[in-house]
Each structure stands twice: as C-alpha cells, then as structure tokens.
Design a protein around this nucleic acid. Structure first.
Lengths: 219, 219
DNA sequence: CGACATGTTGAACCTCATCAACCGACGTGG
DNA sequence: CCACGTCGGTTGATGAGGTTCAACATGTCG
C-alpha cells in the first residue's frame, strides 16, 4: 500500500482489545466495521441450535475481519485467544475501497485465498480420518510458524504454540475433544510430535507429519 | 450488465459442450479460460492420492467457472451431467474486467457467495449426521427448484430432478454410496420425500424436510 | 482450600464404512 | 434375438472408527 493509503487508513482507525471467548461479531447483528488483526487468533464459527459447532475459519495477524459490501454476516467471530485489532468503521472503509481500487483488489485476492482454504478444509472434514485431521492441522501450524519465523531456512526442528484449546481444535476438525486428545497422544507416542506443554508442540521431522496428514495438504 | 458489455463479451466467446464425466478443468494444467454455464451441472472436486474424493462446489447455470487473476487452480472441474458452456479466453476476459470495474465487482460478490456456501458446507461435513446431510442436500435442491420455477408462489408440492448420481452425492456429503441410498429410502419410508424415479424427487412438505435437515440451512 | 476450567484416559455403545450379493436398465456383439 | 458385461442403485451382514459417558489429573483463581 502507498503511504497515503496507510495514513488515510490510520486516520479512521482505532485499536481495540478482546479477551479469550469474547464475541467480536455476531450472527445476529449487522457488521459495522472492518478489522485488521494485530495480535491473537480469531475463530469464525457456525452453530446449530442444539449446540453443535463448526469453526469455518481461523484468522491470524495480519488477516482481515469483516464483510465486504455490508451484507448480513452469517458467522460468529470469537476471540480464540486474547486479541488486539485495528478497527475501521464500515462506511469510511468502504469509501476508501471506492477510492483505491487496488485496495479492493487486495480484498478480492484475500477472499479467493479464504475460499481455497475453506475448500481444502471441506476435503479434510468430509474425507479424512481423525488421525489425518489432527496431523493436517498441526502441519498447517508448523508451516505457518516456519513462514513467520524464517522464510528461507529449514530448521530440522519446528516448535510452535497451539493457538487453540482442545475444544476449539475439535470444532475446527469436526471431532470431539476426546478424539483430538487421543490422536495427539498417539502422534506423541509415535514420535512424530513432541509436547513439552499441552500447548507447545515440536515437530522433529516435518516430512513424517506430512506423511500421516495424508496428502491434500499440498503447498 | 449493459448492452455494450454483453456484446463485447459475446464477441470473444464461443460455445462448447461436455458430456457426463468429462474433465473441464484439471488440477494439473493452468486455467486458460472463463466459462459461463448454459446448461447442466459441473462439480468441483478435490482428491487424495488413494482415491478419496470430495466435491467442494456445485455449479449450475448461470454460474461462472474460472479462476480470477490466473493463479493455478487446485480443483478438478468435471461435467456431472451433459453440460454446455460459453467460454472466454482468459486474457480477453481479464482485459474486459479491467475495463469494466462493475464486472469485477460482480465476480467479487459471486466469490463471496461461494465462500459462504463453502462454509455452510463445512458445518454440514463436520457436524451433521448422515440423515441431516442427505436432507440438507435435498433441501438445497428443493429451494433451488422453487426459485427457478416460480419466484413468488409456494406450491404445496415441490418436484425436481437430482443433478447427481449417488456416487456424486456421496462425494458431496462426505458419505458412501450405500449410506446415501439408505438415508434416501429412510426419508422415503418416513413420507418426507417421494421418488417416482431414482432421479426424480417430490417433497410434499418442505417444513418437514427442513426439520430433519437440522437447522443451519437458514434462508 | 474448594470451585472451576482444561486435558487425559478408559469402557461401552452406535453410527457409518466395508464387503458382498442382488436387481433392473442399457448397449453390444455373436 | 438373446447372452453377456457394465453401470447405477438397493439391501443385508459385519466390523471399525469415533462418540458418549464417566472418572481422574492438573492448574488457576477466588
């Protein structure tokens, strides 16, 4: 983005914090803002009346949260961890979009990426086994951590934090908490991953993880 | 669209037909065209090496098939029935997109709709039972047929053709052929749907179908 | 300390996948 | 014309993968 765009953006923005579990956007209310994630993880969920829930998207910095063209929003956005965002009132942001077409173009490309991710996840949800699901999720995080940390090097050991609790992992993978837990201990027992803490993971050999993730996690 | 846009479009287009099972776009090759579906049904699929398959999108007329900004395409597009499309070479189409911003806007909105549909389906794949899955799919088709046929009236009986064989329904719902078949006969036995032919369905009472589809199919 | 949230582990159960047989429709070649 | 293979679909029997229910462990906070 150009400097001018950035300054225009910052003029209309303000920071906001959410703590774990807080609802950021609701199913019920129209969306009044766009937000840029500064830190933390946000989960997008869909829910059935009886309580069943599915996470349909995870957002990390510097992802965008919002609803282009102010339609109604069919998801919940919830803080999966403590979260800090940079918020833009809807109208102001959409005015900016009209003025800077390449900003809109960016949003478009982001949406296409989200669509690809959603469809990748459809394959996982519909066709993968519990073990493959968990492994695929860990692989996703492992690769993310590599990109964030050092784009070029390939360290033999990858270590990262789980951004989700077991309950959320279950809702993301279409499983139950218990199954997620069991598969994690299985992967640990098989030496494919190590866990110092329940939220800290080490992957000694990514290739081995790729193997149990069962393809389709192309990169 | 304006008349001018339409005429410009038709200048660069040509018709093409595909018969059932034919591959329209492949995983392997870059996409060279956009296409507007004139008749028939196209399925977008993702596949794992061992043969497991998931349909990640269904396209009906007048949907669009293609890949904006000529990235590589991670899906297969296959004719689920005999299909007729109107094709545009990629470069020409993208030139048009640049000239007519609202055409791009249209594509953007279509992409957002696809994203919503994909996420709706994630809920289905991850959290619904076999019965709910099948019912949800039938509900989707029932509503589609209502919209196409008569936007206003609400006839008591809805009748429509299944655009997919059992195998494809299974791949769309994350089930096996046998389970799909069994659930269909269960719904038939319960009087929720009628089947004159294996591909022709009647829904006497949509509300009853909504009921077994288990929410989340909001409209 | 007790209450609560998060995570792990075990046992029983159930839904759905798997394997297999069967049916009708269709097309083809002898 | 009929035998034959193929394809799409249905139905049954069996079994495995995951869910459910329950108990327990650990850590945190009032």
């Amino acid at each position: 983005m150009t400097d001018e765009q950035l300054s225009r953006l910052s003029e209309i923005s303000h920071r906001k914090k959410y703590s774990v579990g807080q609802v950021i956007m609701s199913d019920q209310e129209p969306v009044t803002f766009f937000a840029n994630i500064i830190s933390g993880t946000i989960k997008l969920t869909k829910t059935i009346a009886d309580g069943r829930q599915q996470i349909v998207g995870l957002l990390f910095p510097p992802d965008f949260l919002g609803r282009a063209f102010s339609r109604n929003n069919p998801y919940f956005a919830e803080a999966a961890s403590d979260v800090e965002v940079c918020m833009f009132p809807n109208e102001a942001f959409e005015r900016l979009i009209d003025v800077y077409p390449d900003l809109k173009h960016r949003l478009f490309e982001r949406t296409l990426d989200e669509l690809d991710a959603a469809r990748e996840w459809m394959l996982l949800l519909g066709r993968k086994t519990a073990e493959e699901k968990v492994a695929s999720f860990l692989l996703l995080l492992a690769r993310r951590s590599l990109v964030v940390a050092c784009p070029n090097e390939k360290p033999s050991l990858t270590r990262f934090e789980l951004p989700l609790r077991r309950a959320d992992m279950a809702d993301y993978l279409g499983l139950t908490i218990e199954t997620v837990s069991r598969q994690l201990t299985r992967l640990k027992a098989a030496g494919i991953v190590g866990m110092s803490d329940t939220r800290t993971l080490e992957v000694p050999d990514i290739a081995a993880l790729v193997d149990v993730a069962g393809q389709g996690m192309a990169l």
